[in-house]
Design a protein around this nucleic acid. Structure first.
Lengths: 355, 355
DNA sequence: AATCGGGTTCAAAGCGCTTTGAATACCGCA
DNA sequence: TGCGGTATTCAAAGCGCTTTGAACCCGATT
């Protein structure tokens, strides 16, 4: 039972060189020989050792996906799964593998340095960046190819590669949708605003309000983990205020389910008494309805984002060209039954003028 | 800037042997030398190349997690994230890494054979087995250490290692809970019954019914993807039957949210008009309430399962002992507000006799 | 007949580590 | 002074590949 290249070569009475070249499709191998080699390889189920090969070539054919795991929050971001599913479509085609690193906040720096020093990956896919995330300059310093899912800088964002949803415009659209329906007191169930995307979403909301001359209500803005429970708690809290919001913006589908629960619990009807627009990552197990949408939503497939990010990273690795590639994904605005005309506003049919 | 062992050795005026041994804690190295080596290694941020090391040692220090991705259903199981978070706790301590393989149903066999032939992992963590899953005998044939999250055989299940929730007893308990409340017509929103866990859950339900002499209602048993939408659809369908269920068992928290939506939509009140018990994997972003539970549930932490499975696998790899280790996790039965006395039954206070 | 060159194949070096077996230094003891 | 032994260090082989540079075979060219 042949196992190594050497075994295969002896078995066939050929040199390792020839066998290697036959298998790797080099042109200088006689067709008859190539066929013999392929047959034998198949017969013995021979595949080159990934480690040996990568030691010889210098390429590992592996990409690290770094998932940060907050010790404090003990949370695993639910979008990782679909993002990775998307990315792996690209990897599979290209023969790449995923090295999954789950690393605690506190160990980030060492983890990245190790990744580079151990030379076990050709590139890094970075997820869930914070505003001003230090990992980006770190990766640049290390000289490791990388693509970020999301962005991190306050200004610019042109000196590294990223794929991101246009969070600001998404929440601007969502806010405008609610303003058009006459809502003026809008609750925001946001993610942690240390996360870059959450900051941008809030910016989008505030920009839309400002553009219409509507005063923001800071007491209606929650920034917290995006769980069902938190969505429920924050919403309940706001609904019990003397002058509660008439509409909510939720940062994720899961949080939105908590918002809905709070609304129902308060004896109100979603889409009539209270409106809700959520962002929707189009997760495979959490589709926004099959025939009809469940929520009015700003949708952008995180799986597509994964595929695109992986493609960008692979092409950077292949070309050796590190010049940044960026891709801003616009959302689809889905009108669903969770939004309706603001009940308390009389003049709903004539939207306020901008400015 | 030293990068390799050789560089470090020349830098220090030592042989590679000594440097390697100093770094790896061999006893025959002079303490002073060891300190010098460690200092230099730190200064240069030297870490041995993972590939070179594994080529030399024969161990890859890597575990494959194989996630099946159904081309047909295009679904990524939402529990993978927390399972992996748990497993990586164990790996991190032991210095192991995760090789993530997302493989389509159709390519399973070749994917596993490649994994073995490429020698890129020391073991495999297998997820979401089907009843009679062919991958188990396949891995046995290949001779790769593995642990299954879940089980696959109809009988026995003693010739390989696994970690599983006691699905049967969980759904027996849940069913008994509903029977005690007087419910007789119980809907089951199950996962695909080709999945082993779903089959066992149904068995548990049927066993509980049989033990109390309650006739099963096959028209109330749905077997489908465990998404919110599907939970909603199946429940709506059943609720619109002439003699609908008064209670539901849901196979996952996400499906349960769809069940709830359907109940609310039908103008019914959860926990009063209709009851619901769900299985709860205790996912980090989908906790069953913070202070009070949302649903009555059978709970078992999938993250714990991940940690335990990884520990078993690592100890098997270390000891080289392949004798199977199994671990059956019992659920916690959580009483929440989603269950109540069956409204249509008059004699609810006197539970039926068993038999 | 001697040379040339395309088509094929090969031996050997090298990727960066670990590990074997041998060498060296230095100690106390006879 | 010389020897066994312990402590420490080293050179070299090997892990399983790829790749360089050379060699070989043969029909075509001069």
């Amino acid at each position: 039972m042949a196992k190594t290249l050497k075994d295969l070569a002896t078995e066939l009475g050929l040199s390792q060189t020839t066998v290697s070249r036959a298998l790797n499709g080099f042109p200088e191998v006689n067709e008859a020989t190539r066929r013999r080699v392929h047959d034998a390889a198949e017969r013995f189920n021979y595949r080159p050792s990934a480690r040996a090969r990568s030691l010889a070539t210098g390429r590992t054919m592996t990409i690290a996906h770094v998932l940060t795991f907050s010790k404090h929050h003990e949370m695993m971001n639910p979008v990782y799964g679909d993002f990775i599913a998307g990315a792996s479509e690209a990897y599979q085609q290209a023969g790449y593998h995923i090295h999954l690193a789950v690393v605690a906040d506190s160990d980030q720096e060492q983890a990245f340095r190790n990744l580079a020093a151990e030379r076990s990956v050709d590139g890094v896919l970075l997820q869930a960046p914070l505003t001003g995330d230090f990992r980006i300059p770190l990766l640049q310093e290390i000289g490791m190819p990388f693509v970020v899912h999301g962005r991190a800088s306050i200004d610019g964002d042109t000196d590294y590669s990223w794929v991101d949803v246009n969070n600001k415009s998404a929440f601007e659209q969502a806010t405008n949708g609610l303003l058009d329906l006459g809502h003026r007191r809008i609750g925001l169930i946001n993610g942690l605003e240390s996360m870059d995307f959450a900051r941008r979403r809030k910016e989008g909301m505030l920009a839309a309000l400002a553009a219409r001359g509507v005063d923001p209500c800071p007491e209606f803005y929650a920034s917290n983990d995006m769980t069902e429970s938190v969505g429920h708690e924050e919403t309940s809290r706001m609904l019990s205020m003397p002058n509660p919001p008439t509409a909510f913006l939720a940062s994720s589908f899961i949080a939105a389910m908590g918002v809905r629960r709070a609304i129902v619990e308060a004896g109100l009807t979603l889409g009539r008494d209270v409106s809700l627009v959520t962002h929707d990552d189009d997760l495979s197990y959490l589709k926004n309805g099959s025939a009809q949408p469940i929520f009015t939503a700003t949708r952008s497939s995180v799986r597509d984002a994964g595929r695109i990010a992986a493609q960008i990273l692979l092409s950077q690795i292949r070309s050796g060209d590190a010049s940044p590639v960026t891709r801003l994904l616009e959302v689809d605005y889905i009108e669903g039954p969770s939004t309706g005309v603001c009940p308390s506003e009389p003049s709903v049919l004539e939207p306020v003028q901008a400015g």
